[in-house]
Structure formats: C-alpha cells, structure tokens
Amino acid sequence: CHSECLGNCSQPDDPTKCVACRNFYLDGRCVETCPPPYYHFQDWRCVNFSFCQDLHHKCKNSRRQGCHQYVIHNNKCIPECPSGYTMNSSNLLCTPCLGPCPKVCHLLEGEKTIDSVTSAQELRGCTVINGSLIINIRGGNNLAAELEANLGLIEEISGYLKIRRSYALVSLSFFRKLRLIRGETLEIGNYSFYALDNQNLRQLWDWSKHNLTITQGKLFFHYNPKLCLSEIHKMEEVSGTKGRQERNDIALKTNGDQASCENELLKFSYIRTSFDKILLRWEPYWPPDFRDLLGFMLFYKEAPYQNVTEFDGQDACGSNSWTVVDIDPPLRSNDPKSQNHPGWLMRGLKPWTQYAIFVKTLVTFSDERRTYGAKSDIIYVQTDATNPSVPLDPISVSNSSSQIILKWKPPSDPNGNITHYLVFWERQAEDSELFELDYCLKGLKLPSRTWSPPFESEDSQKHNQSEYEDSAGECCSCPKTDSQILKELEESSFRKTFEDYLHNVVFVPRKT
C-alpha cells in the first residue's frame, strides 16, 4: 500500500485506493498535508475557505447554543480562536489581540433580562453583547459592586439597553466600559436606550469621564423622579442622539420631579488639616426662599486615587461607600458681607490618608415646582503625618564578641513616609551569675543571650482551647457569634421535631 494509506488498500502504491488515510483526505486521495488554498479540518480532512465560511455563517444565523462559528488559524479551520487571539470578521482569520481579548457573548432569543446578581454573573467577562440587555433589578445585597464585577467589562451592545423598574439602582456607572450601543435591534418605538419607572436612579454616568455613542435609535425617559433633566440632556449631547427624540420621548413632568437638581456650584473657602482632623468651610448658599434650606450634607471617604465619582458603590438597598454628615444651616444675616460661612470639623480620621470630599445642599421643593440647590466639586484632601507606631517583631542576635545583629519589621501604621529608623542602645553591667558559677561542674549549661522565638506554653494553649472559665478566673470563653447562636437554635429545633416524629412513629394507638 501507499505510504499515506492506513489499515489496508485495494490497489498497491495508489493513494486513492486506501481504506483510511494516515494524515489527511483531499478529493478522494490521501495526502501528507493540505496544500494551499485548503485548510486542515478536524485533523483528517482538507477543506477550502468557502466550506469553513459556510459553517461560520450557519452557526451565526441559527443562534443555536453550542454550535461553533468556525475560524481560520495556522492553516486550520477550527471552532474558535485560541487564547490571546480574536477573529477578523472580513476573512475569519485569528489575529493577536492588542491588550485583553474581546469576548463576544451571543444571547438566546436576542435579549437577556438581568433581574438578579445570579443572572448578571452569566455575563461575567463579556466585552461584546450580541443582542439586547434588559435591566430589571428590584433589590439585593452589595448590588453596585456585584454588577460592576460582572457587567463592568461590557464595551458594546449590538441591540438596545433597557432599564425598567430597577428600584435598587442609583447610577449606571457599573457599566464602566460601555462605549457603544449599535441599535441594530430596537425596542418598540425605535428606541435604543429605554429608561422607565426607576424610582431611585439619580445618575446615568459621570459624563466628564465617560463617552457613549448610540449609532441608531432614540432615547426614552419616563417616570424617573430623581433623575434630573440636565442629566438626560447631557446624554443626548454626548451620545449623538440630540435631535432624534420626539416631543413625548422625554417626559418633562415625570423626570426629576422629586430630585434636588443642583444648578449652582458650592466653593470651599477654608481648608485646614491635622493628622486626624480636617476643618472645612464653604461659601454660604440661600435659595430664593431661605426657609427652603434644610441644611447641608457632607460626604467623605478614603480615596487612594483621584478618580472618585459621587455615586460609586451606591445602591438604593443601603450600600453606600460614603460617610454622610448632616449639618444645620448657619444663622442668616441681613448683611451679605457678614454672612457666616458654614463648615464642619471632621474628626477621627487616619493620618497621612487622602480623602475625597464634597458637600451639597438639602432643600425642600418650592411652590413653583422649581428645584434649587448647590453642590461642590469633589475635592481631595490629605491629612498630615504623625509619629508612626512601633516597629514590629524586633530580633537581636550576637554573632561574635563585638557585634549584635538587630532586625525588625516595619510598623503596622507608618502614618507617613518613613525615611529612617533611630536605634538606641545602652551598655549593661555583666551578670554576677557568670562569676559565681563553678565551671568545672559536669552538665553545666552556660547562660545564653542568643534570641529564641517566643512560644506559647501548654497552660496558655489549654486556656485558649477551654470553653469555660478556669477556677483562677484568668480566662473566659469568647462570646458566641450570631451565626453560632442561630445554628444552635436550628439544631435544637431539629432535635425537638425529630423526637416528636419518633414518638408518633414508635407509639401507635392500640386498636379498641
């Protein structure tokens, strides 16, 4: 048989008469490798580009789960590009990614509803959504962080984005990388972005840091009482949809009607710091009717980097990364020049730590249904340095008659930039024990000054392991946590139920 035959053949030295091919099969003959313009397919066939392209389009058009959109890589027609490569849609070739590779997620039936953290986790790592997304989240724990972890990498949506009755959302900033909504599939009414009845939605994105392009379709905003109209108009300008909307697409009466839409800028007039305090004062603000001013709200939190936005980490279910302080308005003076500047002394802060701070007014709604208010920009203030805590785990070892090696770990709280350490030492008198000992005694162990690591005695271990207080009263049991108490109650309830079950099964009433 021919060298490319495997198993047997019907005619000697003829690659077209093989029972099976050793390498690849091409047009009725066995070959060692697939010549151009053919590609290896499933490690035994040679196919042309049209064959591989037909497989790709067949799966793409069917949208069946589990099928493969075949691509070409290293002269092979394979189910998908290997790690580190992405497909070129024009020629199906796998090309190296520039940075992290995109991950295209194809949605069944063309859309997916995100109504819980669990459903959001199914899209973790996706960068391109081939379909439409509907966000409908009523509640949950730590929602802002969970949504950002699972949806934060999405850069492109081919269909539309719909935010509907998501009472738990305060902001859409968890879509931190969303840059493009194509609108290839539109919501009824030709809408590519749809926001309806979101009672706590206050911000779409921080438009000073976020760009969003909507290729096709219109915007729809109705019944978002805490979303200011200025935020919607800003989205029109940034996304390129200005002029597409009709009169009733953006409701003037049901958007922002319960919001404090600040239209003035508060400026800080005085800032002073110490290692654990920050004193702030800002310019006074009074609405047209000074009785509408209820006070100020001061927001602050630790910020290692200057990239904080107002609604980071917030949701309507209680999660809030900001510390909020309510401040009463100052006494009002008739003389504008003698107006008191409101302020606040922030206490209990960490030394040498940068804080993000902003302040906003708290006002009631005027009778004319106009909203007044003022808010400052987010500023960054760093507390002063102070003395560091003591170095940890000092170790001293003498390696000769004239040297001592000293080692330690950095302090747990540096409280500033540590530039150097101060080492103090003092000579001590020799131990009298060394002169009084009889060095001729056998088995004498000389006193040693070398360091030995501390260890816990058996008594201390027994005390720590004991669940009861000892007789001397030195140790006591740790208080039980809520989960331990709940577990004990469940076990007790189970024992009672099981005992009742045994009584009912074992003891049967005697027939009379």
Rank of each mutant, 00 (worst) to 15 (best):
W205C: 03
T353P: 00
W286E: 08
P304I: 13
L204M: 08
P411W: 03
F358A: 12
W286D: 01
C317V: 03
S401K: 13
S274A: 08
L196G: 05
S401L: 10
R272W: 05
Q306E: 03
E122Q: 08
I214Y: 05
C105L: 02
I327T: 07
S132G: 12
G189R: 03
G152V: 03
D276R: 03
L362M: 14
I404L: 14
W344A: 15
S119I: 04
E246W: 03
L169Y: 12
F221P: 00
Y305V: 14
L280R: 00
P351W: 05
L178V: 08
L229M: 03
S274D: 11
P342C: 15
G183S: 06
L201H: 00
V117G: 13
K177R: 11
L349M: 14
R281F: 15
E264V: 08
A120G: 08
G313T: 10
A120F: 08
R369D: 05
K267R: 13
I327S: 06
K409E: 04
E146K: 03
G343H: 13
R165P: 01
R124V: 02
L345A: 07
S338E: 12
D315R: 04
F311L: 06
P391V: 11
Q258V: 12
L178P: 00
G125R: 07
Q354C: 15
A374H: 05
N307H: 15
P342Y: 06
A259Q: 09
F358G: 04
I154F: 02
E109P: 06
L227M: 04
R247E: 02
L252K: 06
W282T: 14
K112H: 15
W352L: 07
R281N: 14
H341V: 07
K350S: 07
F311I: 08
D377Q: 03
R176C: 04
L201V: 09
P284T: 06
K407S: 03
I135E: 00
E237S: 05
S319W: 00
D289W: 03
P225W: 15
G110R: 10
R138C: 01
S402L: 13
S274M: 11
L266D: 00
T254Y: 07
L293N: 03
K337N: 15
Y191E: 05
T127V: 07
H210N: 13
S166P: 03
C317M: 02
E283L: 10
L161Q: 00
Y223S: 10
I405H: 04
S173E: 08
H222Y: 08
T371Y: 08
M346F: 10
L280I: 04
W207G: 09
I250K: 05
R291G: 01
S192G: 05
N255H: 12
Q199A: 12
E368V: 15
Y194S: 10
S338F: 13
T273M: 10
